[in-house]
Write a protein that binds this DNA or RNA. Structure first.
Lengths: 205, 205
DNA sequence: GCCCACCCTGTCCACCGGTCCAATAGGCCT
DNA sequence: AGGCCTATTGGACCGGTGGACAGGGTGGGC
């Protein structure tokens, strides 16, 4: 049941992985079967492929493993939707803990990174939004907000739908509501509005 | 050894807490003994007290429990250094999982909040630290740039065409060229790219 | 002169995006 | 109970969008 799939560019899988998860599978690419956790040990990161993998397995937490952890890499991975980032030579016990954390909705990053993320997140979500008038997000319902955030990351309706595990139709509904609340006409303006960018476009026929 | 300390403003502790952690202690304030996890079930949040508690127990993960979870509250708690935020009536099993997650450096927030945090963190940390090389505009020809800037203001093709006094078709041509040069697929991603915002979108069908 | 980059325009077409119609369901407030 | 909000979805419609064909025009470098 707890299938742990390791995607590795190395021909030789790390023995610690097997120590942590006896039934671990190591492959070069993601296959059809849905794993409990996807471990991404591809070096270098291969952002595009990672992104695809994450997208292909909605709901499956992805943890990036790196033999040489770098904060920038970690942030990149998180930006792509990874739920964890740690040393590829972490102890079996640690890997198991990470697995537990991420399979329960947790984000695992390690102390230093964690503090950076929390700091950044609060700065951005609190600092700025707390700062001023209607920057928008607080006008939206949780779902509308979630959809808006997906769109603000460049997602299409279909992608947002897959990510939030709802129908594309529903995404449209939430988006439409968000448009009206924020007084914009399309997704692009919505994103601009959320980023404090003043809109000014003429319409006169 | 795994002391779980619940700080609650309620006289009556939640039985689920004891179910999750038989040795749980429920108090009104933090005491001297160092817990494994500090559960903050004070309602309302009491930011100042929370902050003090977190500061007084370095290394001890603090999880905020709320009978009525609110995203703003959660962000606030995270800003103060809390490592988790969940429903105070969560099942014992869930609480245990959260405990495991946070005691191993994890951040537990629940799906929606998690995506918000990750999005915000990556926007902020990547956007700034990435110290971008080609941020894009230099790669474009003057006309492509002009069109891109119009689009970045929220204009439609038609509007951009009118502004630049060219055909809508020409706008499309320039835009298409810009898309290719910047490696994006649509106007929204183009705008995000021009604003140093990391793109993170899946492609897989 | 030739090549090439840039600018401008055209048609066709599949797909995406936004809106209108309408419906079901749960939660909350009065 | 009824009203209201939210979340969810369906179908249909149509304009906006982007790609795939096309061109024609300019100016600069070789």
């Amino acid at each position: 049941m707890t299938r742990h799939l390791f995607i590795s560019s190395q021909a030789r899988p790390n023995p610690r992985w097997l120590a942590a998860f006896p039934d671990a599978e190591v492959r070069a690419e993601v296959d059809a079967e849905r794993p409990e956790v996807l471990w991404w040990a591809v070096v270098p990161l291969q952002a595009a492929a990672l992104s695809s993998a994450i997208a292909a397995l909605p709901g499956v937490p992805v943890v990036v493993l790196s033999p040489t952890p770098v904060q920038e890499d970690a942030m990149h991975a998180i930006a792509l939707g990874a739920r964890g980032y740690c040393h590829s030579h972490a102890s079996p016990g640690m890997l198991q803990q990470v697995a537990v954390a991420v399979t329960h909705g947790g984000l695992w990053l390690g102390p230093e990174l964690m503090s950076r993320v929390m700091g950044a997140a609060s700065e951005r979500l609190l600092g700025e939004s707390a700062a001023e008038p209607a920057q928008g997000l607080e006008l939206l319902t949780p779902r509308e907000r979630a959809v808006a955030l997906e769109v603000a990351r460049g997602a299409t309706n279909k992608e947002a739908a897959r990510r939030l595990d709802i129908t594309e139709r529903t995404v449209k509904a939430h988006l439409g509501a968000a448009f009206e609340k924020l007084g914009v006409r399309d997704r692009l303006q919505l994103v601009l509005a959320l980023k404090y960018v003043p809109l000014d476009v003429d319409d006169a026929a």
